[in-house]
Simulated assay, not measured.
Amino acid sequence: MTAAVAVIGTGTAAGWGRHRLGRLVAEQTPERAWFHVHPPHHDLWGAREPVVCDAQLLDCFAAGLRAELPVVVSAAPPKPDGPTQRSYAGLAALSRPSGRILVGVHPADAARVPFAAAGCGLLSRAVPGLPTGAREVHGEVAVEALPGWMVGTDASGEPVTVNLPPGATVLVCGAGAAEVVSTVAVTGRTVGSVAGADVA
């Protein structure tokens, strides 16, 4: 009985600690506009290597922003919602990034973020807020490209993915189109032509 209570107490304390850490990040960075940043793919079939976000890249970003250094936060990838997205996420687990890198800037500087990011070889997309469990990061961190879109397997059973370059448009047709399109959210892309956003 004592061991069970100790395990439950430890689990509760760990959960509360993660919740408190997420709240601390939010409290320490009030009134921020948040952007998911990632490097663009260069071509359809070649996956992009991560970009190292270090002090030099942040200085470049701040110079393009004409403002102070942004707050850099690590967050989990978008969560699958429903069986189709869960299936996609499971199949694409090897190519999915382990997390997303978000930058927080003062709202007055938000309009310059896409240009500052482009000057550092990154794309940026506004997100509605700081995700639960986000953690502020310091030092070097890998900024990964969005995962490729799985289109099947090759003769040896390896997954074949399409890595969408910036501005790529994918037209999904056929009876199963709605189910395929429902997996877009798991990749971190958006549906439709939205100015300044990745289009899938």
Rank of each mutant, 00 (worst) to 15 (best):
H106G: 05
E49G: 03
R48E: 13
D198T: 09
L146S: 12
L164V: 00
F35T: 08
P107G: 02
V72A: 09
V199N: 07
V191Y: 05
E68L: 01
V170F: 04
V25G: 06
G157R: 02
R18S: 03
H38L: 03
V186T: 12
P114W: 10
S98R: 09
V194C: 11
G119S: 01
V194E: 14
T132W: 15
D43P: 01
G192H: 09
L94V: 15
A93D: 11
T190A: 14
P50A: 03
V199C: 08
A197C: 13
A67Q: 04
L44N: 02
E27W: 10
P80R: 00
G133F: 02
A110L: 07
P83C: 01
A197D: 15
P83T: 07
L122W: 11
R125T: 14
A92C: 11
S87I: 04
H138S: 14
K79Q: 12
T183E: 06
P159M: 10
V5N: 12
A200W: 14
P39I: 10
G139F: 11
G192S: 07
R66G: 09
V141K: 03
E140Q: 12
A175K: 07
P147F: 14
A76T: 08
H41G: 01
L69K: 00
R48A: 12
T2H: 14
G174S: 00
S74G: 07
L94M: 14
E158H: 13
A62T: 03
L123Y: 04
G121W: 09
M1V: 09
G129E: 09
V199A: 11
P166C: 12
Q85Y: 04
T12D: 10
G121E: 13
V151F: 12
V137F: 02
T29L: 08
A89D: 13
L57Y: 05
E158P: 01
